[in-house]
């Protein structure tokens, strides 16, 4: 498939589809499934310094239409154990670590550990809705502190993953760029909930969680569009992408690549290959030679 190669902050992808953090990302064995499914890059599960068991189940439930609600609560084996898993991946595609911290220093320490494990980039989860700590991505100055501290400590490309739950996600993106971020991932899940009519209580163990899937797409697209107008660094689109046509909308809005998560549920682990193929078909039909040709076109 021609024309699918993209470059994002110096990282070369054979196609612009990436596995989003939080899906199949806890071990080398599971990340390899996404690689075999055609992902151009994979983003691992977010990790903290210490292991976390996360919230009680139910932590992931399906909500119609084609949505998921999760309150996993950043369950992870800790940065060191996950780094050992990522080390096992053979460099078939770029591997991005996702790091979390309860302070800018913890983010930076975890990013350093991941750099030592040989990953190709670091995504800062500034927007997890399911932990008790500060959500750094809610405010410009907090996001800026984290990005600056991480950039001071690592050489790798650093992406800031943001949320539309922030008062002004565009200002947060600008603040991250000023602090030296190499790219923006937009967006994380939106805070949401579901209540069972018979049990008459929230279904998620944590009561509230994050919404992903098709219903998120128009919100994510708006965020990418507005952020792309205001920053020069690359934007990675994320939120409700399950087909090539969805991905193309994000490219037209200015995204350099897209992340796919919930769609694994509806189209299987080969969703990456399918979406890449569908993007290629669109480019060919319309006479474009690469994804780069259409990036940001909707801003005319």
């Amino acid at each position: 498939m021609h024309g699918l190669e993209v470059e994002v902050a110096g990282i070369m992808l054979k196609n612009p589809t990436m596995l989003a953090s939080g899906i199949m990302g806890l071990s080398a064995a599971s990340l390899r499934r996404a690689v075999r499914g055609g992902a151009g890059a994979v983003v691992a599960k977010s990790c903290s310094s210490q292991p976390r068991e996360g919230n009680p189940n139910p932590t992931v439930i399906e909500v119609p239409p084609r949505g998921l609600l999760n309150s996993v609560g950043l369950a992870n084996p800790g940065c060191r154990e996950l780094a050992e898993e990522l080390r096992k991946l053979g460099g078939e595609v770029p591997v991005i670590a996702s790091v979390y911290g309860f302070s800018p220093e913890e983010y930076a320490e975890n990013a350093v550990l991941m750099q030592q494990a040989g990953v190709d980039g670091v995504e800062l989860n500034l927007s997890c809705p399911n932990v008790e700590g500060t959500v750094f991505g809610y405010r410009e100055e907090l996001a800026q502190e984290v990005v600056s501290e991480v950039k001071r400590r690592v050489k790798l490309p650093v992406f800031a993953k943001l949320t539309a739950d922030a008062g002004d996600v565009v200002s947060v993106a600008k603040a991250c760029e000023e602090a030296g971020a190499d790219g923006i991932t937009a967006i994380n899940t939106l805070r949401a909930m579901s209540i069972d009519l018979t049990a008459r209580q929230p279904v998620l163990g944590n009561r509230v969680g994050g919404l992903s899937g098709a219903c998120l797409k128009p919100v994510a697209l708006r965020c990418v569009y507005e952020i792309a107008e205001e920053v020069r660094i690359p934007v990675i689109g994320c939120g409700g992408i399950s087909t090539g046509r969805d991905a193309v909308e994000f490219f037209l809005a200015g995204a350099r690549a897209v992340q796919i998560g919930t769609a694994v549920l509806y189209r299987g682990l080969n969703v990456f290959r399918k979406v890449a193929q569908e993007i290629a078909e669109y480019l060919e039909e319309r006479g474009y030679s690469s994804v780069g040709d259409i990036t940001g076109m909707a801003h005319r």
């Binding site: 899906i23 199949m24 599960k45 189940n57 932590t59 992931v60 399906e62 998921l68 999760n70």
Partner: peptide, 12 residues
Amino acid sequence: FKCGIGICGQCV
């Protein structure tokens, strides 16, 4: 198990 539907990666 967390999700039970094949996406979280917990039981791989």
